[in-house]
Nucleic acid binder design. Structure first.
Length: 502
RNA sequence: GGCCGGAUACCCAAGCGGUCCAAGGGGACGGAUUGCAAAUCCGUUAUUCGCGGGUUCGAAUCCCGCUCCGGCCUCCA
């Protein structure tokens, strides 16, 4: 099976072939730490975490870099507003970001370089561009000369002349030679704090936006690396300018594949800071707030349920639908636990490793299905990381296992070969789910310790059982209904009554 | 205006030239099961994929035009 990825550069799906066989370098544009992250900021990291898991599964040695831009205009302004120093605010928001990502299961980032700690690399990069005649100094500022990059605009398929022909007079900074030129280095302004002023050959100042990414990507992944990712909104100017800087500097291709994820929308609009009426919505979409009220896995599941290039419409309805779906998977795992006598989170054998002694036809059927579905899952992932299709396969899988359990009545009547087959199918199922970063850990029990609850529920169930045996169904129903109101659901099964939290 | 995407059932969402009278999820409605529920299972909910042409033996999938929607062209993941 071969992996194909959609490359923004070519506008087509291409066969994935790493620059160095067996190794993959990924650079994802991370946060500019000037405000708390919202759900949209989680999309890229979640997708790329799944991509890294998948590539690792396929045998590649993956290095994943996510930058932190901590020297920047808005950050300086935000720190001033908050009465904090720039590094203080930046570290604070960075830590919050890392914690949110970790909660979402994104723990596979290898390097998170900070722009502020790569000033030397940035300056060297700029000096090389000046030496090549592709950048020029104006009163302490340094600009990239777009006209010196022949294929400028190739990522977003823009012709720079057309592009900037219509730029209004007022917007053209006098210092720039061409309207499309952009700052590589910005001279320090008198009112800016000292901590964002760095010495440079052109005087005190700080890097422009874009340059930190090409400098750090090349430092950690080499002059040419495999995958560069980010949100669709970064294609222009950010990524276009990174390409211009890097390729003009090295005369080599920068990133081989450019992957862009869709933007998160709310009420069919992109979440944007410049939209004041969405300020309130954004507040509720802040990751820290969302994670306080929803399970991280649910958010991850929702993100992965659509293809990464599609926009995600985030809403309470979507969240609720995803929750119902995800819960059915948790219930399946509980059912498997009961039927197989093994903890599905710990099962280590795969369907393909189970030997079928031929005594039960259901064994061959289940194992065959598991292997067939595994192939379908992997095919989906091979097709530009189609996580939505892959999740669809997971639900097909769940349906098959539920049917198997219905048919064999394994929960009440243990048959060893069937149990072993179930464990194998479960192992395969879990392995696939985990390629998406799902079902890694048991869902957190709400309300913490259920020890006391367990004792009380045992009592309720016992009393209700007596009522049912005495045909006092009204009483039995009152117990069940009132418990349901309190968030405890009772389920009567063949092997007794179980309870769970709603 | 230029450049990218998108338009698939009640909602969300895969599919990207035949195996599609179109996966999966949510919802709804029937049925099995249940004392009744819940959960699970079965069935129904797109002979059709924004509209109009074209290419092809064959198109949701390719090409052209049109209509809407979103993004970018200024800060944004």
């Amino acid at each position: 099976m071969t992996l194909r990825v959609y490359n923004t550069l070519s506008g087509e799906k291409e066969l994935f072939e790493p620059v160095i066989p067996g190794k993959v370098g990924i650079y994802l544009c991370g946060p500019t730490v000037y405000k708390p992250a919202h759900i949209g900021h989680a999309v890229g990291p979640v997708i790329f975490d799944a991509i890294k898991r998948y590539l690792t599964y396929k045998g590649y040695q993956v290095t994943w870099v996510v930058n932190v831009t901590d020297v920047e205009d808005k950050l300086i302004a935000a720190a001033r507003d908050a009465g904090k120093s720039v590094p203080e605010l930046a570290r604070e928001l960075e830590q919050q970001y890392v914690e949110c990502m970790s909660a979402l299961g994104v723990r596979s980032i290898d390097i998170m370089p900070r722009a502020s700690e790569h000033i030397a690399e940035i300056i060297a990069h700029i000096e090389r561009l000046i030496a090549r005649g592709a950048a020029y100094v104006v009163a302490g500022d340094v600009y990239f000369d777009v006209s010196r990059d022949e294929d400028y605009g190739k990522l977003t398929h823009r012709n720079p002349e057309e592009q900037f022909a219509g730029t209004r007079e007022g917007l053209v900074q006098a210092a720039k030679r061409n309207p499309g030129d952009f700052a590589l280095w910005k001279a320090a302004k008198p009112d800016e704090p000292a901590e964002v002023q760095y010495d440079s050959p052109w005087g005190r100042g700080r890097p422009g936006w874009h340059i930190e990414c090409s400098a750090m990507a090349m430092k950690y992944l080499g002059q040419t690396f495999d995958i560069h990712g980010g949100g669709m909104d970064l294609k222009f100017p950010h990524h276009e300018n990174e390409i211009a800087q890097a390729e003009t500097d090295t005369c080599k291709p920068f990133a081989k594949y450019w992957l862009h994820n869709g933007l998160t929308r709310f009420n069919t609009k992109k979440i944007s800071k410049s939209d004041p009426e969405f300020e309130k919505v954004m507040q509720s979409l802040q990751l820290t707030n969302l994670l306080a009220t929803h399970s991280p896995e649910l958010l991850r599941f929702l993100i992965l349920q659509s293809h990464y290039r599609s926009p995600i419409d985030f809403s309470d309805q979507a969240l609720a639908a995803s929750k119902t779906a995800l819960d059915s998977l948790y219930r399946l795992l509980e059912r498997i636990q009961r039927a197989s006598g093994a903890d599905p989170y710990e099962v280590s054998i795969l369907a393909e490793q189970v030997k079928d002694d031929g005594t039960h036809p259901a064994v061959a059927e289940l194992l065959g299905t598991a292997i067939r579905l595994q192939v379908r899952f992997l095919e989906a992932m091979d097709d530009d990381f189609n996580t939505a299709g892959a999740i669809g396969v997971l639900f097909d899988f769940a349906g098959h296992v539920n049917r198997f359990l219905d048919a064999t009545r394994l929960e009440t009547n243990a048959v060893e070969p069937l149990r072993t087959a179930l464990q194998g199918a479960t192992g395969t199922f879990m392995m696939l789910a985990r390629l998406l970063g799902l079902l890694i850990e048991r869902p957190q029990k709400r309300g913490g310790d259920d020890g006391d609850a367990q004792k009380l529920m045992d009592l309720f169930i016992e009393v209700r059982k007596m009522a049912r045996e005495a045909k006092q169904f009204q009483l039995a129903d009152v117990i069940r209904d009132r418990l349901a109101e309190l968030g405890f659901v009772l389920e009567d099964g063949q092997d007794g009554t179980r309870w769970r939290r709603a």
